[in-house]
């Protein structure tokens, strides 16, 4: 009896305030959409990091024929200098950070690589192997430790310059992180709007049924019985919004990322539709939490004794 009564009250309330209820659905849909996007973007960033950073190398360029750097004053790198550099990279504290063995790329190998990848032949015709410089390709166990390796090697005799390939990705990660931040800020603003809208909806609903709630108080209905229908109205509308945004994100990831993006740029691991489902419970929880906050703020005032 109680359950059917509450259910019918909720249904009547939603029907009577249908436009407000729809507004709540839409606002939660958009706000949780932004929030979910932010979470998924961060998941993608984490994916990319674990994907790429394990592949990137630190390149220790050795002195070529002509370089005006102080380390290269004595001319091209000598075998003794090269041995000393390798010694630093393979032993001691630095050696522990480096994945062994270190790959040595000679001038000739560098030139061959250039020829192979220079389809127009522009560079390979004007340059010779002697214009290239030998490189030590160093992989790190922890890519974040670049600075330690750079500090240990860049002042050694025979080292021209030390380059971290991670720099190439820095901009990309910066863009992705900024995008996450923007999505998160928009989500926060929209969530605030959602709370205020749910508050207004519950208030309107409570006001439009003041006659009922007055009688309920008069005849000794419990606080729960009086307030529950309003709480449920807000919660149902908000949850509906959350479900919509989950469906929206799922469709976006499924068709845009899994089907299209993954076929365009195959080198990367993308987030999948199942990642959307892993953030889904959190989104529903937030929606219910929002409406609970709104109920707490509103209902005391409009239905209490």
């Amino acid at each position: 009896m109680r359950l059917t009564f509450i259910a019918s009250e909720v249904w009547q309330g939603l029907r009577r305030n249908i436009s407000m209820a729809l507004a709540v659905v839409i606002v939660t849909f958009v706000s949780l959409g932004f929030l979910g996007s932010a979470a998924l973007l961060q998941m993608q960033v984490a994916n990319l990091k674990s994907n790429w950073l394990s592949k990137v190398e630190v390149s220790v360029f050795l002195c070529p024929e002509a370089s005006n750097r102080a380390n290269c004053a004595s001319g091209p790198v000598t075998t003794a200098q090269q041995d000393a550099i390798q010694q630093v990279l393979t032993t001691g504290a630095v050696g522990d950070l480096v994945k062994q063995p270190i790959y040595y790329e000679s001038k000739e190998e560098a030139y061959d690589y250039l020829v192979a990848h220079d389809k127009d032949g522009y560079f390979s015709q004007s340059l010779t192997a002697d214009d290239m410089q030998p490189v030590l390709r160093v992989k790190l166990k922890d890519p974040e430790q670049f600075q330690v390796v750079a500090d240990a090697t860049q002042n050694l005799e025979g080292v021209d310059v030390v380059v971290d390939q991670r720099d190439i990705f820095k901009t990309l990660f910066l863009v992705l992180n900024r995008a996450t931040l923007i999505a998160a800020v928009l989500a926060a603003v929209m969530l605030l709007a959602a709370v205020m809208l749910i508050t207004t909806t519950i208030r309107l609903s409570a006001l439009s049924r003041r006659r009922e709630t007055t009688i309920m108080r008069m005849v000794g209905s419990s606080k729960t019985m009086i307030q529950l229908p309003f709480m449920l109205e807000g919660a149902i509308a908000a949850t509906l919004g959350a479900v919509l945004s989950i469906v929206g994100l799922w469709l976006t990831v499924h068709y845009l990322v899994e089907d299209w993006l993954a076929s365009q740029f195959k080198t990367v691991d993308y987030i999948s539709a199942s990642d959307v489902l892993s953030v889904a419970p959190l989104m529903v929880l937030i929606a219910v939490g929002l409406s609970a906050i709104a109920s707490l703020v509103t209902l005391g005032k409009y239905t209490s004794a």
Partner: peptide, 29 residues
């Protein structure tokens, strides 16, 4: 433990006579 009656009746206009009276019992479970 207290029944209350008012000058303005305070009936629910969208409920029948029966439903108005039953309402008082429904809402106390």
């Amino acid at each position: 433990e207290i029944g209350a009656v008012f000058q303005d009746f305070r009936l629910l206009p969208n409920k029948t006579v029966y439903e108005n009276v039953a309402f008082a019992l429904q809402v106390i479970g």
